[in-house]
Simulated scan of single mutants.
Amino acid sequence: MIQIFCDFDGTITKSDNIIAIMKQFGPPETNVIKDQVLAQEISIREGVSRMFALLPSSLKEDIVNFVKETGIIRPGFPEFVQFTKEQCLDFYVISGGMDFFVHPMLDGLVERDHVYCNATDFSGTHIHVDWIHPCDGHCGNACGLCKPSLIRKLGKPGAMKILIGDSITDLQAAKLADKVFARDFLITKCEELGIPYTPFETFADVQQELAKLLEVAR
């Protein structure tokens, strides 16, 4: 059995929506916070909470429209999802992104109960992130949405676990995976830590490699 755990921002989408939102709507302080997260000086949970807390809730409609207009699905993704269904592979999206843009972009592609992301609250003066998938007792990294915890929760005994990702938010999950498909910053971290990985640019690349794995398994 193969289980696939896939990141959203910068992986399913061609660019990171949170970074794009902060560039478009955030004050200069968001750049400092982003750099601190990438350098692992502060946790992902703290960094993302602080960045969204700088954005007024009144911007909700503008932000949603911005993501709809600028968010682009990486080539080959719809075909890849169909491939996983045909091959009876468990496919989950585990995203550090926010519900207000993750779910609309994946509607019609991935069943909602297979999509895990953060919740957002716009009831106050500024945007508040609800971390509804926190770290379990085996993780103390304050991940925010904790990908390794979700892999432990959703993983089935004996299954081959595959991680597809691109960023620092995928690093801890990559350490648990049997196979890693990586791009961008995740490649840098995998090379630093000696984590084996397969690079990819489109989901056609991933599908091709998975097809080879399935042939070997047979």
Rank of each mutant, 00 (worst) to 15 (best):
D170R: 05
A174P: 04
I195C: 07
Q172F: 12
C190R: 01
F185Y: 14
A174K: 04
Q172V: 09
I168V: 13
L186C: 06
P199F: 12
T198Y: 10
K189E: 13
M160H: 11
K175F: 12
L176M: 15
L171P: 00
K189N: 09
Y197D: 06
A182T: 02
V206Q: 03
T202H: 10
I187F: 07
L150M: 15
D205I: 05
K179V: 11
V180I: 15
A174M: 08
K147G: 05
E201P: 09
T169Q: 01
P196T: 09
K153G: 11
P196F: 07
Q172K: 14
K161C: 10
I162N: 00
V180C: 06
K147I: 06
I151S: 04
E201Q: 15
D166V: 07
I195K: 03
V180W: 00
K156H: 13
I164T: 02
Q207A: 10
D205H: 08
D184M: 12
A182V: 06
K189W: 09
G165C: 08
S149F: 02
V206Y: 00
T198M: 14
K153E: 14
D184R: 15
A204E: 14
K175M: 12
T169M: 07
K156C: 12
V206H: 04
Q172W: 11
A204Y: 15
S149D: 09
S167F: 00
I187T: 10
A182E: 02
A174Q: 06
Q172H: 14
D178F: 12
E192F: 11
L154T: 03
I162P: 01
A173R: 02
K147A: 01
I151K: 01
A159T: 07
L186E: 04
L193Q: 15
D166G: 06
K175R: 15
L171K: 02
Q172R: 13
L186Y: 06
I168M: 14
P199K: 08
D170P: 03
D178I: 07
D178T: 08
G158I: 05
G194F: 06
K147Y: 07
P157D: 13
L150E: 03
